[in-house]
């Protein structure tokens, strides 16, 4: 194991009855790296996150966080972690600021540290005015922001973010990205799941695509695109009736063809040239668009599913 590896998973497996939610995945994350997990619903991302946090017991395989097994050293491992679970689990019986203070107490932190820290985090989450509100009275996005702020209370070395920006408005999301960038600069390791490709491309140095509990591909966003997709994509819409039927007539154009209910995607290094071939066959799409390949396309290729479903 390299010295700067902070998370190492080896053949990590979690079974719920017969279902293997996580099916023997192996990966390593270095200190200061920002590592993403991508995958469709039910792929096993959250389950992996829970095992890293030591709140879910693995069925088999090995896992080490900063050299410790989270199962036998749960409290010690989690002292280094900040966790944003997929579902907010704020303390509904406490007020907004109390949530931060009490959470800090769980880490054994003194109030003299927690009071100014809580105010700083409220500021960051844009919740200063709501400090004395009941958690129940916050909007969904505000709760999310509070959960994120709460995860930073102990200045974690490793931050686990399970779909952190789901439910956030664009402004809040950009504030969070900015904050995450800065934490990364300070050497904090980020583990992130997301369904937003722009988020993954922006934040992740490296990511794995998982499906049905297995790793389908691994690499940096750009290398994944290079490896699993063409340079450009031609998107054609023929109207909902014809999209599916027209596939046969488009055979042979570009490297690969993907027929979705609402559009047809043609993968080619030169999108414009592909479009010319289409029209040359006497086919006239309602709309056409040439764009660069994105992680979305990698995802589609690897899992056969579109990401946001």
């Amino acid at each position: 194991m390299k010295p700067d590896v902070v998370i190492a998973a080896h053949k990590l497996t979690k079974k719920y009855g017969d279902l293997a939610a996580v099916d023997g995945i192996s990966f390593e994350v270095s200190a200061g790296e920002s590592f993403g997990l991508l995958g469709p619903n039910g792929a096993g991302k959250s389950t992996t996150m829970k095992m890293i946090g030591g709140v879910s017991q693995r069925t088999s395989g090995q896992l080490s966080i900063m050299g410790l097994d989270p199962e036998s050293h749960g409290p010690e491992v989690r002292a280094h972690l900040g966790v944003v679970p997929q579902q907010d689990n704020l303390d509904e019986e406490l007020k907004v600021r109390e949530n931060l203070l009490v959470y800090g107490r769980y880490f054994g932190l003194p109030l003299s540290y927690l009071r100014p820290k809580a105010d700083e985090l409220l500021e960051f989450a844009q919740l200063t005015e709501k400090a004395k509100s009941r958690v129940d009275d916050l909007s969904g996005g505000m709760k999310r922001r509070l959960t994120i702020a709460r995860s930073l209370i102990n200045e974690p070395r490793i931050l686990l973010l399970d779909e952190p920006t789901t439910g956030l408005d664009p402004q809040a999301r950009h504030i969070l990205w900015d904050r995450l960038f800065r934490l990364k600069e300070q050497g904090v390791t980020l583990i992130l799941t997301t369904h937003y490709m722009d988020e993954a491309e922006q934040l992740c140095d490296r990511l794995i695509v998982v499906d049905k509990g297995r790793i389908m591909a691994e690499g940096s966003p750009s290398s994944l695109i290079r490896e699993h997709s063409t340079r450009e994509v031609l998107e054609l819409r023929f109207g909902s009736e014809r999209n599916t039927r027209i596939g046969a007539e488009l055979q042979g154009i570009g490297e690969r063809l993907e027929t979705l209910p609402d559009r047809v995607l043609i993968y080619a290094d030169d999108g414009e040239a592909a479009l010319e071939q289409v029209t040359a066959r006497g086919l006239h799409p309602l709309t056409s668009l040439v764009r660069r390949s994105s992680l979305e396309d990698v995802f589609l290729r690897l899992t056969g599913r579109s990401l946001v479903d």
Partner: peptide, 19 residues
């Protein structure tokens, strides 16, 4: 100061199920 506090909190002795 904050940094010291968080470091101190991490340097405590932990049990496997108990802190």
């Amino acid at each position: 100061e904050g940094h010291e506090a968080t470091e101190a909190a991490r340097a405590r002795k932990f049990g496997s199920l108990y802190s």
